[in-house]
Design a protein around this nucleic acid. Structure first.
Lengths: 348, 348
DNA sequence: GGAGTTGTTGTGAGCGCTAACAATCGTCCC
DNA sequence: GGGACGATTGTTAGCGCTCACAACAACTCC
């Protein structure tokens, strides 16, 4: 029968979509009562509610979100501006954000950035505001972004995910220094005299955080601090830098700032005949799903991007709910995953 | 001066946001004229337009998208429902879609799926309709999805990206059979007697397409067709299947249905002491950015996911623009990227 | 010089919903 | 038994915009 109704609706060509008044008429109530049941207001008699629900189903009625937004001044939409959603980190955060948003009953509108230019972030935020999002999560791991956040969040609640520290914007991030320290310490504990570092681009906060954690651990242990090499996160750059490392007979341990670069590094080492972990120990960062299947299996630092996204969204929702204390800062701890790519230094 | 205005606005606490009427008043025109300049209507005198623009800037006016959507019945929003945006393929398509949407002046609202259950897709589509999207791109590579598409797209224009063939829904896809055929032929041309296949899950269209291409190429060449093994796309499953392959001395060539599984496969082969490509040649599929840095560098089939996403969105926009011919079907050709993981069979 | 043009601007009526208020009905209490 | 009160429902205004149409100018043309 419901099917029949639908068919009829489709046949009589330009039948306009049912609106609240239609439902009200069919249920024999006022449109306001329909609105009440739609919004779960208390004080609607059970039988009335049932009748309204039946009418809604029969007409296959769907509330008009634009009208709703206009009247209630709430769009039920949150924005996400993210840098290159093709990367594992941002993609995973986005996923976490979307799921959290759905369970908080918000829609997610995204705009991805190709460049991390200041302008670009501002434009993205602007675009989202145009769409009347109620709040924005920014996934912008570059240093240049942190200043922008403070500036952009004028009038819209804004939360940074994996972004740099700013006093004015609430943030959720993974403790990069701690992660890097774990990796470095692990290598030191294995007996290596020092640990070399393949870093990410200097413009990324994650990269500088990891450098800082690595450096301070080395210094704390009284180990020499070699000049870090810096790549662009790609396997290609890890490979190129790996060739230089392979040529340096001094190196026995490398902490590489992400798993993709590590993959390139392993390849370079392999080609140069430097065995991992026999000749050189390697530790990565991220724990991408493939890391356990590198040759050899990669010891790395796991960061839970999904959790990061989820927490960022929850923080945003909390603020939206009026929970506007001081801009909270959530730090998530990473975790060392020990596999086969690092082992005690071979005694000469 | 503009700064001064803003400050004043902020200070006098509950000043409501400026609306079109405010702009009109300040510019000394009617609200309709303001609307005209906002929508680039012709027939607005240049000086008038200038005045309006100035007023807009001075008040820092931003049109209300909900009101706009309500009055014009156009939300300027497109929906994307995607399966696991964490995977390289979907993530890249999403990226392509977002960029294309932006340049066509649409917003993108996403909902990601955790399960590919029929219900799940329908719910996602339903959710998007609730939000009044003007059209939807579905990234649902599973077989179960194709039927759903036909069913779901009732009332909203819908385009599938990388989805199965359905007569009722326009589609953009990459030619999986052709890609698999290329890979298989490449291996055959190298002198291998036959080619083994590590397939994706049977529920995925991409997987069955690749099996079909592989099988028919083998049959066309009169080569024996071994039973394909089937994994779940993950490196882990590639590794497990790889252990079985490594144990089979007959195998000299493997076509693996994606690069992640290939990575696991390479690891298993390596551990078993089977050299690639000396003992076994391997060809992958996808050409993820890391493929060139596998050990050894992976010969694989490149599919341009970004392009796929872009084309899907363009198709959707075209249909929205009234261009509703027969549900078009766009097939994108993949491309073989030859690297070091496959080579002529060693003559015994 | 009046009728048609074209270009430019204004007017009024909604779009479909929510929020505030008003109305109605029974109930309870002293 | 009358007034207060709670539960339920209806009425009335907008929310801020776009669309269709009307109005008016300044031209053109025969």
């Amino acid at each position: 029968m419901s099917a029949k109704v639908i068919t009829v609706t489709q046949d009589s060509a330009p039948t306009r979509l049912p609106v609240m008044a239609d439902v009200a008429r069919l249920a024999g109530v006022s449109h306001q009562t329909v609105s009440r049941v739609l919004n779960d207001h208390p004080n609607v008699a059970a039988p009335t509610r049932t009748r309204v629900l039946a009418a809604i189903r029969e007409l296959n009625y769907r509330p008009n979100s634009a009208a709703r937004a206009l009247a209630s001044k709430r769009s039920k939409t949150l924005g996400v501006v993210s840098f290159d959603t093709t990367l594992y980190g941002p993609a995973s955060m986005l996923y976490g954000i979307e799921r959290a948003a759905r369970s908080a009953d918000y829609f997610i509108s995204i705009v991805s950035l190709s460049s991390m230019a200041r302008r670009s972030v501002l434009e993205a935020v602007e675009r989202l505001r145009e769409q009347a999002v109620e709040g924005i999560v920014v996934i912008a791991p570059q240093i240049s972004a942190s200043g922008v956040l403070a500036q952009a969040g004028d009038g819209v609640p804004l939360v940074g995910a994996g972004c740099g520290l700013t006093e004015r914007v609430p943030l959720v991030a993974i403790d990069q220094r701690a992660g890097a320290a774990m990796a470095t310490r692990h290598l030191l504990d294995l007996g290596h005299r020092t640990v070399h570092h393949v870093a990410g681009p200097a413009s990324w906060l994650d990269a500088t955080g990891r450098i800082a954690g690595w450096r301070s651990t080395l210094e704390g242990a009284g180990a020499p601090v070699p000049e870090p090499l810096s790549g662009d996160w790609s396997a290609r750059s890890g490979f190129e830098l790996g060739q230089r490392i392979a040529a340096d007979a001094e190196v026995t341990a490398v902490f590489c700032a992400n798993d993709q670069m590590t993959q390139g590094l392993l390849r370079a080492l392999h080609e140069a005949g430097r065995r991992v972990p026999e000749d050189i120990s390697v530790v990565g960062f991220d724990d991408i799903p493939e890391a356990a299947y590198f040759i050899p299996p990669l010891t790395t630092v796991r960061q839970d991007f999904g959790e990061l996204g989820r927490r960022a969204l929850e923080l945003l929702v909390a603020r939206l709910a009026g929970n506007s204390g001081p801009p909270g800062q959530v730090l998530i701890q990473p975790e060392l995953v020990v596999r086969a790519s690092a082992r005690p230094v071979a005694r000469a």
